[in-house]
Amino acid sequence: MALKSTIYKAELQIADMDRHYYADHALTVARHPSETDERMMVRLVAFALFAHERLEFAKGLSDTDEPDLWQKDLTGAVQKWIEAGQPDEKRIAKASSRADDVVVIAYGGKTSDIWWQAVRGKIERLRNVRVWSLAPGTAEALASLAARTMRLQVTIQDGAAWVGSTDAEPVAIEWTVLKAPAA
């Protein structure tokens, strides 16, 4: 018998002063049986960092043709494709041909560094791809906020972000830009 996804409910209060985006989002997040709390929370933070009225969770791990998150325009064309983790270069190249903007948010410290060194040469040529690497320990700190029902406040200002809840200390979201999209 196949294991089913675990459903999490998250209320995100986003104050993004860099983009002047202020909104509350009531989200339902399905955590795949093979997914860790770290990865699920990185997906949730990715939603907050790129929040938009049409940004939504996709099938991600369950379907190789869909990202973790995507934003489509009114015609159904993919504007933004967001991946969490360390996807292979073929998946990133495929995303690059299907979407206007591709974002990869890698995490995992040393394993993330090793992954980047392996795919860097092939990814550098893709003009619409950006790759960020979360600071070591960030995903683990985010996992400490995971609960079946979450109420999180996200503040983004001057290129920095914090995620907090009433039950825990805020977590600073720090990242390094490994690749920026071509101008």
Rank of each mutant, 00 (worst) to 15 (best):
A141H: 09
E66H: 10
I105T: 10
M40V: 05
W115A: 14
Q79H: 09
R91C: 01
A51T: 08
S97D: 09
T138M: 04
I82K: 02
K80G: 00
K80Q: 14
Q117T: 13
V131R: 08
A99P: 11
R148L: 12
V45S: 00
A84G: 04
E35V: 04
Q79F: 03
V42S: 05
E35R: 04
E89R: 05
D73H: 00
K90G: 02
E83C: 00
I105W: 09
T36Y: 04
A93P: 01
L61T: 05
V45Q: 05
R130S: 15
D37E: 09
R91V: 03
F57L: 04
R130N: 12
I123C: 14
A48E: 14
K110N: 10
E56N: 11
L126W: 05
A143V: 05
V42H: 05
A143S: 12
K90T: 07
L152N: 07
A58F: 06
D37T: 06
T64V: 10
R54M: 10
V119T: 03
P67W: 01
W132V: 08
L74K: 05
D65S: 11
I156F: 06
A93W: 00
P67V: 04
L152P: 05
W70E: 04
E83R: 02
A58W: 03
P87R: 09
D100F: 04
R148T: 08
P136N: 05
I105L: 12
V119D: 09
A147W: 02
D65L: 10
L61E: 02
D158N: 07
S133V: 06
D68N: 13
D113L: 12
E140Y: 08
A118W: 10
V131M: 12
L152R: 01
W116A: 03
T138K: 00
V104T: 01
V154W: 13
A139T: 02
P87D: 02
K90D: 12
D68G: 08
E35L: 08
L145P: 04
A77W: 03
Q86T: 12
T64Y: 00
G137D: 04
G137K: 10
G108L: 12
F47I: 01
A147V: 06
D68C: 09
Q71W: 03
S133E: 13
W115S: 14
R39Q: 13
I156W: 08
T155W: 09
Q117Y: 11
K80W: 03
M41W: 10
G137C: 08
V42A: 02
K110R: 14
G60I: 06
G108E: 11
V102K: 04
V78Q: 00
V42W: 03
G109I: 01
A46Q: 07
L126Y: 08
E35K: 08
M41I: 00
G121I: 12
T138G: 07
V78S: 00
D37C: 10
S96R: 10
T155M: 11
D113G: 05
L69W: 01
V129T: 09
A48D: 13
M40I: 06
W116Q: 06
R98T: 07
E124V: 13
D101T: 03
A99S: 13
G108K: 13
A48F: 14
